[in-house]
Computed example of a mutant assay.
Amino acid sequence: MDDLASFLRTRRSRVDPESVGIFADRRRRVEGLRREEVAHLSGVSVDYYVRLEQGRATEPSEQVLDALARVLELDDTEREHLHRLARQRRRRAKTPNGKLRPELLGLLDYAAGAPSLIMNHRLDVLAGNRLAQVLYGVPIPGLNTARHLFLAEADRGFYADWDACTSDVVGHLRLAAGTFPDDPRLASLIGELSIGSARFRRLWSRADVRARTHGRKTYRHPLVGLLEFHQENLALPDQPGLELIVLTAIPDSSTADSLRLLDSLAAESADTASSTHAEPLRP
């Protein structure tokens, strides 16, 4: 799904030669740095670097990887990804089983005032509280947010920052592919998204990686309009690949008011469904 060779090639093409002291005139046809330039700047032989990009080299040392990261101007997330890809042959992470401890499910109840989800590395929603169900308006669990984002055309307007969301999701899936390269369901998902979405194909070819931690998240809900949240992605240390995601609204904001309205509508709907399916009284 992801490999060291392709990552090096894409990162090399992004570096401005002048930023590393190389004069580039108009006759230069290579986008970014040449292979020999990367080799020279990182202190390795041209032959060895070429073999790295062709996937034929032995595992590079930590020193070589650090030198490459410096030359290719990688940020912290990209640097960690580079090291992870280089270690894949000798140590491959086991695909998580996705089982949730009862204590984790209990956390969702404690966060009843905020839409909260437990999600795996494939962006499958494994569990969610009532506000999360109301927010997305589709069955939870069972939702995959990557499919919802790229393939559900009718729901595209739900994501107010669709362009930014798509970039973040592809960056996350790139990291997941590097962390869990032996996960067949992740490979299948990436193939499905590649076939079904031209935007996904374009973003995937860039090989960007992004770590999801926290930030602003905005939705357009069909019932209450614009909802603005702060999102926290909390990694679960004892269950690799799983995250608890909590969406909070500023107190007394329009979003907070809209959440209360949605919660009330959901409660009414649940009461109606309960009474409809209740066993009739016997005379």
Rank of each mutant, 00 (worst) to 15 (best):
H40G: 02
E36A: 01
Y49I: 07
G43Y: 02
Q54S: 04
V38G: 10
D47E: 13
V30C: 11
R51P: 00
F23G: 07
D66Q: 14
F7Y: 12
Y48M: 13
G21K: 03
H40R: 12
V20F: 07
L8I: 11
S19P: 06
R29C: 10
E37I: 13
H40P: 01
R35N: 12
R51I: 03
V30H: 00
V50E: 12
R27A: 15
A5S: 15
L33Q: 06
S6Y: 01
G55N: 11
S42T: 04
V46I: 10
R27E: 14
A69G: 15
D16M: 02
R14I: 04
R27W: 12
V30S: 12
Q63V: 08
L41W: 07
E36V: 03
V15N: 04
A39M: 04
A39V: 08
L41S: 08
R28E: 14
Y48N: 07
G55T: 08
L33C: 03
S6E: 11
Q63N: 01
R12H: 09
L33A: 07
E37F: 09
H40W: 09
L41H: 15
R35T: 08
L41V: 06
S6A: 13
A5F: 08
A67I: 05
V64T: 13
Q63G: 06
R56Q: 14
R26T: 08
A5P: 13
S42I: 02
R29G: 07
G43P: 06
F23H: 10
V30E: 03
E62A: 15
G55S: 07
S13H: 09
G32A: 07
V64E: 02
G43A: 11
R14V: 02
Q54V: 10
P60K: 00
E36D: 15
L68T: 00
R29D: 08
Q54K: 02
V64K: 01
V50N: 11
D47A: 14
L33N: 09
D16H: 01
V38T: 09
V64A: 08
A5M: 06
G32Q: 04
A39H: 05
A57T: 15
S45F: 00
I22W: 08
E36R: 00
V50T: 15
E53V: 05
S19F: 04
V15H: 05
D47F: 00
D66K: 13
L68F: 00
F23K: 09
E18G: 10
E37P: 07
E18H: 11
R35C: 07
L8A: 00
G21R: 00
S42W: 03
A67W: 06
D16Y: 02
R28Y: 01
Q63F: 05
Y49K: 08
V64M: 07
D16W: 05
G55D: 14
L68Q: 00
Y48P: 10
G55F: 14
S45M: 02
E59V: 13
R34D: 14
E37N: 09
